[in-house]
Design a protein around this nucleic acid. Structure first.
Lengths: 187, 187
DNA sequence: GGGAGATACTCAACTTTTTGAATAGGTGTG
DNA sequence: CACACCTATTCAAAAAGTTGAGTATCTCCC
């Protein structure tokens, strides 16, 4: 039941269809929460049944109809309550790190490639998020934006995402250097 | 079936009981993979049935007997194959970030407290890992260690864990400052 | 004009994870 | 000497997440 909190937080931006949310929660876009389309559609149905969101069917001409979801008052209340709940330690699960941990008994070349892939992935995410950030700031400095913006939450999470991916790159480059030196030494 | 890879990577350090692994995979200790004891015991049983690990029962005097697991040749082979498999994008799920995203519609004081808690948590992890790092280095510089060590994987993942938690602290402090300024402005 | 990819979902089966309890002796603290 | 916490594991139920396919129309690019 944690996905619903992420969905409600996303709906603070305004109405969205399951399809819209699926794009936002996609691995290549999502900043701090991922979910598959199936997960989202199921959860949205449940949330609607419980009165947390309301659906409005929009008939479209040359496309399938869609249901646009928005937060109800009850949904807002639930979201507010969620923000005040005690925080449980989040589950970290990083497959790349398992590979790196096992590199000495594994295929060092493949692990090297996986680290390089992570770096490329991080660069792509940063590029995307920097564009989003520029759009948010819209010419203002960060301080001007933070002083005037209605919502600062999305900006703070964006900063965290950027910092995380930048750290991935820094660490990744260091790891590549170490792996290469080790590979050379074992020749 | 991803947990088993993490378990095999952990068993590279040598024999361990389910209980030992449960401690290593605990939220307050784990660097890049978490699992509950139940998850581990179940997975170890399956892995034993599939020949990936072998159990050795150690009878103890004033404690329950324990089963010490170690990697079999087949387990090592599987682990090696895993390191060469294509990497799937890892699932990010950070409840704190959901709260921060929703802070403008939520309980700002509670979110602030949650960020502060994350900072304290990160500090505790760093302290633990710096001790572990000092033990690994054992007086040597990082370069000396990396040149001579049998295994570099655990050191690289340790670096990633440290960098991640340091980033948590930097971001957290920035977020607190922004939240405080916002709270003051809304007074 | 053919094929890839976007829009917008639904269904079903399966695996994994979470939660909570139970067992049972041992050790350390005030 | 009671109480909390440590060792070491097992069981069961419920919730959540993953995988893969299917439907149908539209747009864009070569």
């Amino acid at each position: 039941m944690a996905l619903r909190n992420a969905v409600m937080a996303a709906l603070l931006e305004g109405e969205a269809s399951g399809y819209d949310l699926a794009k936002e929660f996609d691995a290549s876009v999502a900043n701090f929460w991922m979910a598959t389309p199936q997960q989202l559609y199921r959860e949205l149905d449940r949330m609607e049944a419980e009165g947390l969101v309301r659906a409005r069917v929009v008939e479209q001409e040359r496309r399938p109809n869609k249901r646009l979801f928005s937060l109800t008052e009850q949904g807002r209340r639930h979201l507010r309550e969620f923000t005040a709940e005690p925080l449980r330690p989040g589950a970290i699960r990083d497959e790349l790190m398992v590979k790196v941990q096992a590199v000495d008994a594994g295929d060092a070349g493949a692990v090297r490639a996986a680290v390089a892939e992570r770096i490329a992935w991080a660069e792509a995410k940063i590029a995307r998020w920097e564009r989003l950030r520029a759009r948010l700031l819209d010419g203002r400095t960060e301080d001007e934006f933070l002083a005037g913006a209605e919502r600062i939450g999305p900006y703070l999470t964006l900063l965290r995402g950027l910092a995380f991916e930048e750290e991935n790159i820094r660490w990744g480059r260091r790891a590549l250097a170490v792996l290469d030196r080790r590979a050379a030494a074992l020749q």
